[in-house]
Design a protein around this nucleic acid. Structure first.
Lengths: 355, 355
DNA sequence: TTGTACGCGTTATCAA
DNA sequence: TTGATAACGCGTACAA
């Protein structure tokens, strides 16, 4: 592999000149530039970005940490990061934590050793030591899908509380009053915790008593949603509507409900969160709270790059969420056909459904 | 940021010794090791993997190139690569080509400049110049989801031809004889081309004449599938079953068929290819040809790492595909109710369906 | 077991 | 506009 020195020798110039034709071609006379260019061809010269990084102390690489690439929202945000980084000639190293804090820690460590210029983290643990360390050591980073609103960190996120609120409100406006929630485990990330808070407050604001049996926490997976809905349906008084803390879980929940013999949305309304790319392709098409994952990824990357060259104050970018009503939600059957009997205490066989 | 020199000075040893406690702790006496370790803590020493890479000419980084991270198969294979790499302390830089050859080229160039130790490429263009260059320049790489079986390249793939064949055979065994195909554009990747070949041969082997109007090529996207199915259904003689060249397209096709008023699988059977993680969660659950994407990614990474330290001969790993029958395929209605009239020339209004 | 000294490929500083 | 040369942080002979 030939180096600048080889090129320099061949072109009878100094390595400095070779470096110049690469980095600031205009600063070198046309004639010498051509000579150098020709020499580069001749010895099949390949630029070594690693050596450059070593010399400049900039790797032109950022680290991107996500919990689970299989969840389409994260795939989407990753694409947003990627494409922006690409535009700016920045490479991105991807790390998948599987929602494990220890994995997140060791990834960050490895990434830092690799001298990434910055980090975009969809963290599982915003209050953890690692994040604090990043701050005190002045590593440029931004938290993506973050729940923190203030403080000394740069952030791209949405108002999860509000999202949970409007999801629930939608269900209530449809006439539901027995509304369950399937939430990704609160101990794993607090995104779902905030959404749950919105859900709970909304119930309260509408005079619907909160029933803790209607909440089930689960893993951030398809099967998590599927198992959880069955658990919910298995109760004596099962919900007529369920808010799932993300679309991925909702997809599982819909499957589970179907397996339980329900037809959606007649028997059960489901609302998700995220609006992942396939949400409108689901059956029924998923009513959900949209967060612009691609743009959020893009924005996070933009913010990071800007921070990298000019630290400045932390910025919080809160993006808009909005309710997207599709086919997975409808008025509860009982509201329409309601006579004197209360659905929830009725002898409707479905309420006693056994798997 | 403190360096080895700082640590060495503090511990009153040489930098070589510091290097040793990091890379081969056993080769240094326990006492000095402790001294060094303590010094490292004291000055908050951070190892610089980039400098190491520069010195050793190994970056411990590989490049992973995929066409579209939003397609769940590629997310899944990416996870396989990731987790294996992680285990071996290798970082992976991700690149997304959006099925554009030019993008693939420039990514490979950038990755090489970054001195990645190897490349895993789900290529859009296996016969392109780039691949040849990689070979002649002895860059370790492996083609993932490859269609090439022999030759001088290492490969992890499946028999796409056979996959297409058994998908079609399944449909035929169900009683279908008017079988369409929605294929990702042949000019974009030849994976779908090979699958189409299997489809075509299977028809032939079963005495079903090939009808070119029953093939539509489209983009590798949800909307591609959705639009294409409508195009197919719009024809005078529309198919009773459709083989989609991947699940992602199939998801779109199912949506489109539904919008066209069909109910699946009664009115239309769909079979996909991939068995992406959500395939069994679709409605109807997708009948498909399974390829073990996670294992393929893992295998590709394993193969690459092995190649990196011992070039040797190229290896081709062909993984097993298998038909997974779920709910999206069924016998055609007409076969059961068939009287004297031929369905395909019948006046069934559906055949004249207009969007 | 430990230290010395050089090299890796590039950038950056200073001088010409 | 160009050249000479000293970094950059680490590995690694080779010597001690």
């Amino acid at each position: 592999m030939s180096t600048m020195r080889d090129v320099a020798r061949l072109a009878q110039v100094s390595t400095a000149t070779v470096s110049r034709v690469i980095n600031s071609p205009d600063s070198v006379r046309g004639k010498t530039r051509k000579k150098v260019l020709r020499a580069m061809k001749m010895c099949n010269y390949k630029y070594n970005a690693l050596a450059r990084g070593f010399a400049t102390k900039k790797s032109n690489t950022i680290g991107l940490i996500i919990p689970n690439i299989n969840n389409p929202v994260f795939a989407e945000s990753t694409l947003g990061v990627q494409e922006y980084a690409d535009e700016k000639q920045i490479k991105v190293i991807l790390g998948n934590t599987s929602y494990k804090v220890s994995q997140e820690e060791s990834l960050i460590k490895a990434l830092r050793e690799s001298q990434v210029d910055g980090l975009i983290i969809t963290t599982t643990n915003p209050k953890g030591e690692i994040i604090k360390t990043l701050i005190t050591e002045k590593i440029p980073f931004v938290l993506l899908f973050s729940t923190v609103k203030g403080g000394p960190v740069s952030v791209v996120g949405v108002d999860n509380y509000r999202g949970g609120y409007i999801a629930t409100e939608h269900l209530i406006s449809l006439g539901h009053n027995r509304i369950g929630m399937i939430a990704g485990s609160f101990s794993v990330t607090d995104r779902s915790y905030h959404r749950w808070h919105g859900y709970r407050q909304c119930l309260k604001d509408h005079g619907i008593p909160y029933n803790k049996n209607l909440l089930v926490q689960t893993g951030y997976s398809l099967s998590g949603g599927r198992d959880s809905i069955k658990q919910l349906l298995n109760q004596e008084l099962s919900p007529s509507a369920v808010f799932c803390s993300n679309d991925y879980i909702a997809l599982g929940a819909i499957k589970g409900a179907r397996e339980a013999g329900l037809s959606l949305p007649e028997d059960l309304s489901i609302v998700g969160f995220d609006d992942m790319p396939t949400a409108s392709y689901m059956v029924p098409a998923l009513t959900t709270i949209r967060q612009p994952a691609y743009d959020m990824g893009k924005r996070a990357c933009e913010l990071l790059l800007q921070k990298m060259e000019n630290p400045g104050k932390p910025e919080q970018h809160m993006m808009e969420t909005k309710l997207v009503v599709r086919e997975s939600t409808a008025a509860p059957q009982e509201v329409k056909t309601d006579k004197s009997e209360n659905y929830w205490t009725s002898s409707d066989p479905r309420t006693n459904y056994i798997l």
